[in-house]
Amino acid sequence: MSLARDMMTVAAVSAGAFFFLAGTVGLLRFPDTLTRLHALTKADNLGLGLVVLGLLPQAAGLRDGLKLVGIWLLGLLAGATVSQLIARAARHGQLNR
């Protein structure tokens, strides 16, 4: 049972780490603000979600699990808001390039 849990954790966290890596590469390599945002938000939300998913089986109890999910939701909220703001600023031409 615990082996299965550990394997799930390893798999999910590794996948999450991969998405983070991909997102970061995209952030550094993509040409303009909007594509960069695209790389960042998609990869980060998915990456964070997978990491949280992977950590859930390791949580000591229901409360810790709920806290983890809460962190993910808050991360999503913050990421979504900030990318909206940056995208709007980019569209209004407040940012060049």
Binding site: L77, T81, Q84, L85
Partner: peptide
């Protein structure tokens, strides 16, 4: 009606 105001209404209770 912007997203920041939305956040500012949603987040403080939490």
């Amino acid at each position: 009606r912007g997203v920041l105001v939305f956040l500012a209404r949603l987040l403080p209770p939490i």
